[in-house]
Design a protein around this nucleic acid. Structure first.
Length: 898
RNA sequence: GGGCGGUUAGCUCAGUUGGUUAGAGCGCAUGCCUCACAUGCAUGAGGUCACAGGUUCGAAUCCUGUAUCGCCCACCA
């Protein structure tokens, strides 16, 4: 069979993944004879398409899952998708808009039908893309956050919290997106700075009943604001009680311009006398701080905006219907006319933005549902403080704790249609004339009650709002195991929940630490009375080559599917794992993936060589028992052992990057660069076993990172040999060290030989000898001679020599170490070049020598440093002195000979 | 306004508890189609480890400060 010299990942990956699926290689079952290892996937949005962030996040998870599976754990990667309320609704609304329709035109029921259609059609796109990446999820378990069962869990949780009075309804100021026309949580409304102005506006003051000293007899005060349009909703001005400048205002009448409303004057500590003029306008219905003040001082709340943030009937006629920003300009013009603008200053305003559509948030007072977070936070604080849940990198612990300690109540109701509708019903009769926040006539239940339990009325309606998407996501680690049904007797589901929960690692980007991770810990503690996972691995953000976050709108994305198409999933995965140091951001460009592509090709060609040699030499091996080994074989195995140990430890510590590097280094720079070259001229049955053992072991070590090519190579080895290997790498055993190593003295000799070969190459390059094959002449003692003869063929190959003679005396010495001297059999030698390079080496060693000798003559060093350090330093000095001496002798001898 | 992280070769980054001759990949230079791979092989050049102090026999590593870039949080209107 011909194996092409270039690796083509595409057919291989498709074929292999299909085979894995057919054989259900990723399925995990509660299995008491094994230890569980479980990761729940951060469920991608159904609207999602695979981007580099997903690729990074999911590759990390797959590596861990595959590693543990090979280590013999019952390894479960739980997959699924998130219904992503606002995002998905927005997509379908846009589709509707193409038909010139609004959701209201077709009504809630029809609109939901369209949403389900869309989800059925496109919702699993990302799942298919994850398969292309090689994800080894147990796909039969795939969950969706709006599955019937999952919805039951959501309802159950809502009801439980309501009954514990941890959910309440209240009329508060919340973050409102005027474009999505829904409430948002604080986390969904991140603050960003925008350029704006600070306007100083004159509010007329009329003297009130009291006496005002003449020096204060001015006819206006000045307030500073960045949002002049909100003044139409002003109901007070506020000053700091300790601010002596404005005491007179308490007895004065402040008039709101344009509206001509009289404003209350209140005193509040929250007012900073230093800022602006020290007088602040108070708009309780449109500013969170003013809202607080309004509550405190019992002010009037005037909502001046419609849901889409156009001005409503509560403003003077001229402004009704204007958009908020349009209104700002209009108001400024009017104020200008009335000469009521004192001045304006450029000002950076920090404003909330909708995390879905980036529209500036409009604070809005409206009845919403909230979760009381403080009680929930207690457990979540404790487990992290006690390191029951740990973060990696550790620094996130502080960030997490800071957030949880300062937690605010969570606004969970959304005025959209796609999502879990609140399990809340209202009895119209009981609600008659009742205050909005009252619980009277409110029925919280999983199903609509036929009649009101209080009055028997049957005019019952369900709350129109749906729940925040994250209100379902926070249940993910246990709701995916059919909680609460699994608690209520379903045997198989319960076994799974008991077995796999708590899960082991959660892998995520820092962006959703608060949204999701923190809340999952709370939900875990509240509903399972247990942490949901014990480790949180937080990886970096994927950025472009300039360090800018990749986003579709900026057009700087690198599509992982393009990379898979061009270079293969293995190349993509390997490159990402190599680049993504723990926790730091990843800067990407197309060419960064060449590392992965090239490495795949290297693996491919190394395999070709192995198979070729076996075929050529007609060597049959049926087992990999390592025996009759020469030192150089042991040398290779020893380095492989070291690689196994380091890679295993790194993977256990979640340092995938480190493990990947170690395996890569061994494979390329030890196995390919040295061992494969060595066996070319020494192909024996024993070496074949070392060769295949090393190759198979490398494939195992690399399999978590590069599942496809390693599997393909594994299969090829099986096909081309009579080895009894495991059925598939997915379920193969993780390698263990062979504990075979050369004796220390032999190892030292081998290392010296490797160094010698490097020196020969170096000298050849320095002398500009190009590809010329030289005659190698070596002077060595009898013991060393035996050693050199035994290894002669590969010494010649690796030093590109055509012959090797061991002589009692050399005509000239070009390199010398403790065991042997070397000459290259050529007539003319560019003596000048040789001496120059020799002198360079000498001067380098000289510097080190001097440093070391200064250190060793420093009594303070000898007194203070640990004995070990001093010993090491002495040994190093000995070594360096010898090297230096040899080099100097070499130069002298060379000069004499020439 | 608080908090966190980065600053090491032209670029992207490693560097474990202070004890080396500071590493890798890419790029660069030079030479090689050496019967697995030019997606390759060999050799090499390139760094006062951001800056300034301090601790120490010894600092890229610990402490303090400065600069600079980035991120997160926060009701200064």
């Amino acid at each position: 069979m011909e194996i092409p010299s270039k690796y083509d990942p595409k057919p291989v990956e498709e074929k292999i993944y299909q085979k894995w699926l057919n054989e259900k290689k990723f399925a995990a079952r509660a299995n008491p004879s094994k230890r569980p290892f479980c990761i729940v996937i951060p469920p991608p949005n159904v609207t999602g398409i695979l981007h580099m962030g997903h690729a990074l996040n999911n590759t990390i998870q797959d590596v861990l899952i595959r590693f543990r599976r090979m280590q013999g754990y019952e390894s479960l990667w739980m997959p699924g998708t998130d219904h992503a309320g606002i995002a998905t609704q927005n997509v379908v609304e846009k589709e509707l808009a193409k038909e010139r329709l609004k959701k209201e035109d077709i009504g809630r029921e029809k609109f939901l039908e369209r949403l389900w259609d869309w989800t059925d059609k496109h919702g699993s796109t990302i799942i298919e893309q994850l398969k292309k990446l090689g994800a080894s999820c147990d796909w039969d378990r795939t969950r969706f956050t709006m599955d019937k069962e999952y919805s039951e869990a959501v309802k159950e949780v809502f009801i439980k919290l309501y009954e514990k009075e941890l959910i309440y309804r209240g009329n508060y100021i919340i973050n409102w997106c005027p474009r999505c026309e829904t409430a948002l949580s604080d986390e969904e409304s991140p603050h960003k700075e925008i350029d704006g102005w600070l306007y100083y506006i004159r509010y007329p003051v009329e003297q009130g009943g009291g006496k005002i000293p003449s020096k204060f007899r001015i006819n206006y005060i000045i307030v500073a604001t960045t949002r002049p349009e909100t003044m139409l909703g002003d109901t007070a001005v506020a000053i700091n009680p300790r601010d002596t400048r404005y005491q007179y205002l308490k007895n004065a009448k402040v008039i709101l311009p344009i509206v001509e409303r009289e404003l209350k004057v209140v005193e509040d500590e929250a007012v900073d006398p230093e800022f602006g003029t020290g007088v602040v306008k108070v708009t309780p219905a449109h500013d969170p701080a003013d809202f607080q003040m309004g509550k405190k001082h019992n002010l009037e709340f005037i909502n001046i905006m419609n849901p889409d943030s156009t001005l409503n009937q509560n403003v003077p006629e001229d402004f009704i219907g204007m958009d908020r920003f349009e209104a700002r300009q209009a108001i400024l013009e009017v104020l200008q006319e009335k000469k009521l603008i004192e001045k304006r200053e450029p000002y950076r305003i920090s404003a909330g933005h909708c995390y879905r559509c980036h529209t500036i948030i409009e604070p809005r007072v409206s009845p919403q549902w909230f979760v009381r977070m403080r009680p929930l936070a207690q457990g979540a604080i404790k487990v992290v403080e006690e390191d029951k849940v740990t973060f990696l990198p550790q620094r996130w612990k502080k960030v997490y704790l800071n957030w949880v300690h300062n937690i605010q109540d969570w606004c969970i109701s959304r005025q959209i249609w796609w999502g879990h509708r609140l399990p809340v019903y209202y009895c119209k009769d009981c609600r008659e004339g009742v205050e909005e926040e009252s619980k009277k006539g409110v029925i919280v239940a999983k199903e609509k009650p036929p009649t009101c339990p209080a009055c028997g009325s049957s005019t019952i309606t369900q709350d129109n709002d749906v729940l925040d998407t994250w209100f379902s996501s926070w249940l993910w680690p246990f709701a995916t195991f059919h909680w609460p049904q699994s608690e209520h007797g379903e045997e198989k589901a319960k076994a799974d929940l008991d077995y796999f929960y708590p899960t082991n690692v959660l892998v995520t980007a820092s962006e959703i630490l608060f949204f999701w991770v923190a809340r999952m810990i709370m939900a875990g503690m509240e509903f399972m009375n247990q942490i949901p996972f014990d480790k949180v691995l937080i990886h970096g953000t994927v950025r472009d080559a300039k360090g800018i976050k990749m986003s579709k709108s900026l057009g700087n994305i690198i599509d992982p599917l393009d990379i898979i198409e061009k270079f293969g999933a293995d190349a993509l995965r390997f490159s990402l794992m190599l680049l993504a140091a723990s926790g730091s951001d990843v800067y990407l460009s197309d060419e960064k993936f060449l590392v992965g592509r090239n490495f795949c090709n290297k693996i491919w060609n190394a395999t070709r060589l192995c198979l070729l040699k076996i075929k050529e030499n007609k060597i049959k091996v049926s087992d990999l028992e390592l025996k009759e080994l020469e030192d150089i074989d042991k040398w290779c195995l020893q380095q492989l052992d070291e690689t196994i140990n380091q890679a295993t430890k790194s993977l256990q510590d979640l340092s995938i990057n480190d493990a990947t590097k170690k395996a890569y280094d061994f494979f390329w720079h030890t196995f390919c660069d040295w061992y494969l070259e060595i066996i070319k001229d020494n192909f024996t049955a024993a070496k074949t076993k070392v060769l295949l053992h090393s190759l198979v072991t490398s494939m195992k070590l690399l399999h978590p990172v590069m599942p496809f090519i390693t599997q393909e190579v594994f299969t090829l080895i099986k096909e081309h040999s009579s080895l009894k290997l495991e059925d598939s790498l997915v379920s193969a055993s993780w390698p263990k060290p062979s504990n075979i190593a050369p004796k220390e003295s032999e190892a030292a000799k081998l290392n010296l030989l490797v160094e010698t070969i490097r020196q020969i190459r170096n000298i050849k390059t320095d002398l500009g000898l190009g590809a010329k094959k030289l005659h190698l002449e070596i002077k060595a003692g009898p013991k060393a001679e035996e050693f050199l003869r035994a290894n002669a063929t590969w010494i010649m190959r690796l030093s590109a020599s055509q012959s090797l003679d061991i002589k009692p005396k050399l005509a000239r010495t070009l390199y010398k170490n403790a065991l042997w001297e070397i000459n290259l059999g050529i007539e003319d030698i560019d003596a000048e070049s040789f001496v120059t390079s020799l002198e360079k080496k000498i001067s380098k060693i000289q510097t080190i020598f001097e440093k070391a000798s200064v250190r060793l003559t420093d009594q303070r060093f000898l007194d203070n440093a640990s004995p070990d350090t001093v010993e090491n330093e002495k040994a190093k000095f000995e070594e360096i002195s010898l090297q230096l001496k040899r080099l100097q002798e070499l130069r002298k001898a060379f000069m004499d000979q020439k």
